[in-house]
């Protein structure tokens, strides 16, 4: 579908906060961690997947339930099943690796309950 964001396409060029350029498929956990460190204002959170189910409101989408950060805040987002998430120590993962491969040519692991995803939030000012 033409509405899919193309930054997940295999080969897409991603600029890290350090200025370094990498292909999306070559990104490592440390690239996100380092980028957040130097970006100022952004912070990496660990968001654990606690539930995956079909969206009640939006047919065709998947509701992903996370507990986010040290506060273990509960956050739910609805995404297409092919949407990739970056899992700590594992890399790109999605609810449907087959669809991700079809749409983006990006290799993904299956996203599962218990996976800890990279997410960002605003740095809290002390």
């Amino acid at each position: 579908a033409p509405s899919n964001p193309s930054h997940f396409m295999k080969g897409a060029i991603i600029q890290l906060a350090t200025g370094e350029l990498k292909r999306v498929e070559d990104l490592q956990t440390q690239d996100f961690v380092r980028s957040a460190e130097v970006s100022g204002g952004l912070k990496i959170d660990s968001s654990m997947v606690v539930d995956i189910r079909a969206s009640q409101q939006k047919p065709g989408l998947v509701s992903l339930h996370f507990t986010v950060g040290e506060q273990q805040s509960k956050v739910t987002i609805d995404v297409p099943p092919e949407h990739p998430f970056f899992v700590f120590g594992q890399g790109w993962s999605s609810c449907s690796p087959e669809r991700t491969a079809q749409l983006y040519d990006l290799a993904c692991h299956p996203l599962q309950v218990g996976d800890v995803c990279v997410s960002i939030t605003l740095q809290q000012q002390p």
Partner: peptide, 19 residues
């Protein structure tokens, strides 16, 4: 060739403030 910022790849999950 378009260049995308790193933060566009990961979700912004803002915890809801409770207080």
């Amino acid at each position: 060739v378009p260049v995308f910022p790193w933060h566009s790849l990961v979700p912004f999950l803002a915890p809801t403030q409770s207080d």
